[in-house]
Write a protein that binds this DNA or RNA. Structure first.
Length: 904
RNA sequence: GCCCAGGUGGUGGAAUAGGUAGACACGCGGGACUUAAAAUCCCGUGGCCAGCAAUGGCCGUACGGGUUCGAUUCCCGUCCCGGGCACCA
C-alpha cells in the first residue's frame, strides 16, 4: 500500500498527545481566537458520522487560525447531566455517574480518532463537583441579586433592602415576610407557577422539552400543574437580550427566532370599569390596537385570571364553575388538539367602555392566556380573528371600524385603512389612530403606553436525581443559601433514583440531606444550568478561586466562533446570553455577549436502504421488479449495501429469519430502494465514523464531510461518494513520493505555471475559509493537485506551501509530509502562505464575444487596454465582419475582464 | 395562520455588485494496463434534433410574467419542500 493512512494517523495522534501540541496558555503577545463547539451530551449510542460535522469545521478553522498566528483556544467537554443516564439508572440500578463516565470514554476515543486539535487539558464535565461548584455559585449570586429597572442591571439585594428600610416597609415585617417580599425581586427566586408536569418522568419539563403535549424524552403525556418552583428572572433581561442581538454575527434567521421568542410588542394598558352588579372595580387590559376601542363588544378573561372570582355573578356561578372544571381537566395535548374550537362562558358581569360609555359583557375563555399581558382583553371581533370566531360562536355583535372592510365572513386584521365609527378617530389612518388613541387615554388618566414581552422566566427546578443540587437549605422554612465555602454541595448517594412514595424528588431519599440540621432543597437544576457558562470555565478550568480568573477572562473575553445545531436557538442560546449578562452586571466578566459569531451546522441525515419482501414468503424482489408483486418495504442495514446493491450473502447472515431468503434479481443483482431519513438505529442507516476511519482514514473522513456540501445545510450521508476524496489524498501523497513510495522532493525553482496553480489555491482557500465555504476549497484543492500532477511538479517551493494550506483539512498526512520534508516541528507551528503573484501574469485577457447575447468567438486583448481600446479591437476584428453579415452595429457592450456583447 | 430559509443533470453540489450554467466529485458507459481481480490511468456523460465525422442548431436553473443587449442571479405573482412559532390581544 502506498498511502498508509492507518499508520500515519496513529503516529501523529500519539505525537500530538505526547507533545501537548494543542495546549494553550494566555499569551498577551499574541492575538487570541476562541473557537467553541457546543459540547455534546454523551449518549450511550456513541457518535455517528453526523455528529462530528461541526467539530470538523471548527477544527479546520482553529488550525487555520493557528497558522495565521492566533493563540487559539479550542476546548471540548461534556454536557453530562441529563435524563437518559437517569432513566437508565432507574431501569438498571446502575449509577448515572458510571454510565456517564463510560459514555464519555467512548466519545473521547471516537473523537481522538478523527484527529481534533482540542486542548484536552481544559476539558470540563458539567457533572463533576469541581465544575458544578460554579453553577451553584452562580445560582447563589442570582439569589442575592435583584434587577433594578432604573439602572437596568442586576444589583445586590441589600440595595433593595435599604430602600425598603428607607420607605419604612421593612422593620415591621417578620423574617418570613421579609423573605417572601424579596422573593418577588431576586433574579433566582422561588414562585408558584403553572408547569409542564410529566407524571411518568416524575419531573417538570421546560417548554422546549415538550412537543405536542408529550415529553421529547420518552414521549410521555405532560400536564399543567401549579407548583412552587425555582425560577430565573430571565424576563427582566428581555429588552437587553433583544437589543444586543443587533451586534451579533449570527444568521438572520436565528436572530429572528430569538426576536420572536422574546416577542416584544408595543401597545397600551387601558382601564375598564367592571361591575358584578354589587361591586365596581378598575380592570386593566393590554392591547396593541388602542385604535379599535370603539369596536369593543365584549371582554374576555383567562380562566386562571384573578378577576374570574370577583366578576362571576350568583346566577352564572354554576355555569362558570362547570367551565373552569372542564378547562382544568384538559391536558395540554387536548387543548392543542382543540385549537380554534371556541369555548367560553359568560361571567354575568359587565364592563364599561371608557370612551363610548357602552356596557359590554365580560366572558371567560381559554383563548385568553393568563401569563401574558394582564390575563384580560378587550375584544374587537371586527379586527381580530380570535375575537371574531368567539363572537360568531356566541352571537356577539361585530362593529366594523375601517372604511370599506367586509367582516361578514372574516375579521379584518390588517393594520391599514381609514377609521370609521370611531368618534374622534374617524377619518384617520390606522397608523395615525393608534398613537392618537393612546395619547387620548393617557391624557384622561385611564391608560398608558406599555411594552410587553412574551419571554417568560425560566423554570429552574427539576424533580430529578441527576443534576446539580441547589445550595439552599430551609432554616425555619425560609430558603437560605449556603455559605460559599460549603460548595460544592455534592450529589448524595440514594438507594433508588425514583421519587419517594410520598412523591418527593429522589434526593429526599438521601440520608442526612441536611445542612446544620436544617433540611436541604431536594430538587435539582435543569440541563441548561451546566451549559450556561461552560465557555467561561474553559478559559480557566483549574481555578479553585472562581469560575474564571480576571486575567484569563480579560484575555479570552468571549467566544469568537461558536458552532452548533439550530435546535438550541431558543433554549441554551437565550439562557447562556442571560447568564453571561448577569455575570457582566455583577462585574464578573468583561463582555456583555458570550458568542460573537455563530454558525449552525446542518444535520447529516441518513440514507436508508430498503428491500422488498413478497408478502407471506421469504422472497425478496429487486427494486425495478417490485411493482409486479405484492410486497412489503423493509429497512435493510446500509452496511451490507454498496451503491444500492445488496450483498445477498451478508443479508442471509444479517438475521436468522433471512437465512434462507431467496432473491428475484435484475441483471444478476439485487437493487435496493432508498430514502433520506433521520440517522437512527431503527432505520439501520447509522454510519459509524470509526469504521470510516478504519477503511479510509480520518483525513478522508474530515475532507469528505466538508465536501458533502455547505456547512449550514442539511444533507444526506452517502458513503459511496467518499472514494473521490480518498483518491485525491492518494494523488496528493504521490506528488511527494516516487513509484517506490520513497519520499522525493526537488529543490529546483518553480516555473510560472506551477506558481500560478499554487497561488490560485492559496487565494481561494483563504477567501473560502473566511466565508466558511469549506466544500469549495476541497474542489479547488482537487483541481490544484490534478494540475500539479500533470505538470509532474515535485518542487519544494510549491509543495511546501501546498501542504500547509491543506493541513487544517488533512492534518495527519500533512504532518507526515512535513516531517519527511525535514521539519522538526509540527506543521501546526508553520504559517499560512502568503499569496504572492510571483508568476509572470499573462499580458492579455481572453474575452468571449457575443452577438445579440449569443457567444460566437473569443478574442485576446491586451490586459492594459481600456474599454474603448477593447471596443476598437473587436470592431477591427475580421470575425466581427463575418458574423455581422453587413448589419450595422447599434451598440458594443464591454464588461472589463468579463465579456464583449455586440448588439446589431 | 404567521415568520425564516430554499427549489440547478441520474446523485451531492459549483457559479449570484447580472456576463460562456452544470466547476469538483459520485454514479453510469467505453477504453488502456493485467492470466484475472484490485488499484491506477484515459475518453464520454443536461435534454432534443441534424451529420460518417469534425461540428452545428434548438430547449434548458420549480412555474407564469416583467426589467435588460444579456437573468440561475433583480422585481411581481403562483406552486412545492424544509425549519421555527403557534390562540401572545
Amino acid at each position: 500500500m502506498d498511502y498508509n493512512f492507518l499508520d500515519i494517523e496513529k503516529k501523529w495522534q500519539a505525537y500530538w498527545a505526547e507533545h501537548h501540541t494543542f495546549e494553550v496558555k494566555t499569551d498577551p503577545s499574541k492575538p487570541k481566537y476562541y473557537v467553541l463547539d457546543m459540547f455534546p451530551y454523551p449518549s450511550g449510542a456513541g457518535l455517528h458520522v453526523g455528529h462530528p460535522l461541526g467539530y470538523i469545521a471548527s477544527d479546520i478553522y482553529s488550525r487555520y487560525k493557528r497558522l495565521k498566528g492566533f493563540n487559539v483556544l479550542h476546548p471540548m467537554g461534556y454536557d453530562a447531566f441529563g435524563l437518559p443516564a437517569e432513566q437508565y439508572a432507574i431501569q438498571t440500578g446502575q449509577h448515572p455517574a458510571i454510565t456517564t463516565r463510560d459514555n464519555i470514554a467512548r466519545y473521547r476515543q471516537q473523537m481522538d480518532r478523527i484527529g481534533f486539535s482540542y486542548d484536552w487539558s481544559r476539558e470540563v464535565r458539567t457533572c463533576s463537583p469541581e465544575y458544578y461548584k460554579w453553577t451553584q455559585w452562580a445560582f447563589i449570586q442570582m439569589f442575592n441579586h435583584w434587577y433594578n429597572p432604573e439602572t437596568n442591571k442586576a444589583e445586590p439585594i441589600d440595595t433593595l433592602v435599604a430602600r425598603f428600610k428607607a420607605e419604612g416597609r421593612w422593620d415591621s415585617l417578620s423574617e418570613k415576610q421579609q423573605s417572601d417580599l424579596l422573593m418577588n425581586y431576586r433574579i433566582a427566586y422561588q414562585g408558584e407557577t403553572a408547569v409542564n408536569w410529566c407524571p411518568q418522568l416524575g419531573t417538570v419539563l421546560a417548554n422546549d422539552e415538550v412537543k405536542e403535549g408529550l415529553s421529547i424524552r420518552g414521549g410521555f403525556p405532560v400536564e399543567q400543574k401549579k407548583m412552587k418552583q425555582w425560577q430565573l428572572r430571565v424576563s427582566a433581561y428581555s429588552e437587553r437580550l433583544l437589543a444586543d442581538l443587533d451586534g451579533l454575527d449570527w444568521t438572520e434567521s436565528l436572530k429572528e427566532m430569538q426576536r420572536n421568542w422574546i416577542g416584544k410588542s408595543q401597545g397600551a394598558e387601558i382601564v375598564f370599569k367592571v361591575s358584578n352588579g354589587s361591586e365596581e372595580y378598575d380592570m386593566t387590559i393590554f392591547t396593541t390596537r388602542a385604535d379599535t376601542i370603539f369596536g369593543v363588544t365584549f371582554m374576555v378573561l383567562a380562566p386562571e385570571s384573578e378577576w374570574v372570582d370577583k366578576l362571576t355573578t350568583a346566577e352564572q356561578k354554576a355555569a362558570v364553575e362547570e367551565y373552569l372544571l372542564q378547562a382544568k381537566k384538559k391536558t395540554e395535548r387536548e387543548r392543542i388538539a382543540e385549537t380554534r374550537k371556541c369555548t367560553g362562558v359568560f361571567s354575568g358581569s359587565y364592563a364599561v367602555n371608557p370612551l363610548t360609555g357602552d356596557k359590554v359583557p365580560v366572558w371567560i375563555s381559554e383563548y385568553v392566556l393568563s401569563g401574558y399581558g394582564t390575563g384580560a382583553i378587550m375584544a374587537v371581533p371586527a379586527h381580530d380573528s380570535r375575537d371574531y370566531a368567539f363572537a360568531r360562536t356566541f352571537n356577539l355583535p361585530i362593529i366594523p371600524l375601517i372604511e370599506g372592510c367586509d367582516v361578514s365572513q372574516e375579521s379584518f386584521d390588517a393594520k391599514e385603512g381609514i377609521m370609521c365609527n370611531s368618534g374622534f378617530l374617524t377619518g384617520m389612518s390606522v397608523k395615525e389612530a393608534i398613537p392618537a388613541a393612546i395619547d387620548y387615554v393617557e391624557s384622561k388618566g385611564i391608560g398608558k403606553r406599555k411594552v410587553n414581552y412574551r419571554l417568560r422566566d425560566a423554570i429552574f427546578s427539576r424533580q430529578r436525581y441527576w443534576g446539580e443540587p441547589f445550595p439552599i437549605y430551609y432554616k425555619n422554612g425560609i430558603p437560605t443559601p449556603m455559605p460559599l465555602d460549603a460548595l460544592p454541595l455534592e450529589l448524595p448517594q440514594v438507594d433508588k433514583f425514583l421519587p419517594t412514595e410520598s412523591g418527593e424528588p429522589p434526593l429526599a431519599r438521601a440520608k442526612n440531606w441536611t445542612y446544620e440540621g436544617w433540611p436541604v432543597e431536594t430538587s435539582t437544576m435543569p440541563g441548561f444550568a451546566g451549559s450556561s457558562a461552560y465557555y467561561l470555565r474553559y478559559m480557566d478550568p483549574h481555578n479553585n478561586e472562581g469560575l474564571v480568573g480576571r486575567e484569563a477572562d480579560n484575555y479570552w473575553r468571549n467566544v469568537d466562533l461558536y458552532i452548533g445545531g439550530t435546535e438550541h436557538a431558543t433554549g441554551h442560546l437565550i439562557y447562556a446570553r442571560f447568564w453571561n449578562k448577569f455575570l457582566y452586571d455583577i462585574g464578573y466578566v468583561c463582555e456583555q455577549e458570550p458568542f460573537r459569531k455563530l454558525i449552525n451546522q446542518g444535520m447529516i441525515q441518513g440514507r436508508s436502504n430498503f428491500v422488498y419482501r413478497v408478502k407471506n414468503t421469504n422472497k425478496f424482489v429487486s427494486y425495478a421488479l417490485k411493482d409486479q408483486y405484492d410486497t412489503t418495504e423493509i429497512h435493510v442495514d446500509v452496511n451490507i449495501v454498496s451503491n444500492d446493491r445488496l450483498d445477498t450473502e451478508a443479508f442471509r447472515k444479517w438475521r436468522p429469519d433471512y437465512a434462507d431468503a431467496e432473491f428475484i434479481l435484475e441483471d444478476g443483482e439485487y437493487v435496493c430502494g432508498y430514502a433520506v431519513e433521520k440517522m437512527s438505529k431503527s432505520m439501520f442507516n447509522v454510519v459509524n465514523p470509526d469504521l470510516v476511519c478504519e477503511k479510509y482514514g480520518a483525513d478522508t473522513l474530515r475532507m469528505y464531510e466538508m465536501f458533502l456540501g455547505p456547512l449550514e445545510q442539511s444533507k444526506p450521508w452517502d458513503t459511496k461518494g467518499i472514494d473521490g476524496v480518498h483518491r485525491f489524498l492518494r494523488k496528493l501523497w504521490r506528488l511527494y513520493t516516487d513509484s517506490e513510495n520513497k519520499f522525493c522532493i526537488s529543490e529546483e525553482k518553480a516555473s510560472p505555471a506551477e506558481l500560478k496553480v499554487l497561488h490560485r489555491l492559496i487565494g481561494k482557500a483563504q477567501s473560502d475559509i473566511e466565508n466558511f465555504s469549506f466544500n469549495t476549497t476541497v474542489s479547488a484543492a482537487m483541481i490544484a493537485v490534478n494540475e500539479l500532477s500533470e505538470l509532474k511538479c515535485c518542487k519544494r517551493e510549491i509543495l511546501e506551501p501546498l501542504i500547509i494550506v491543506l493541513s487544517p483539512y488533512v492534518p495527519h498526512i500533512a504532518e507526515e509530509i512535513w516531517q519527511q520534508m525535514g521539519h522538526g516541528e509540527s506543521i501546526s507551528f508553520a504559517s499560512f502562505p502568503e499569496y504572492v503573484e510571483a508568476y509572470t501574469a499573462e499580458d492579455s485577457v481572453t474575452y468571449p464575444v457575443q452577438f445579440n447575447g449569443k457567444m460566437r468567438f473569443t478574442l485576446d486583448v491586451a490586459k492594459t487596454a481600456d474599454r474603448t481600446e477593447v471596443e476598437a479591437a473587436v470592431r477591427a476584428n475580421p470575425a466581427t465582419e463575418k458574423y455581422l453579415q453587413g448589419a450595422a452595429i447599434r451598440k458594443v457592450i464591454v464588461v472589463p475582464g468579463k465579456i464583449i456583447n455586440i448588439v446589431y
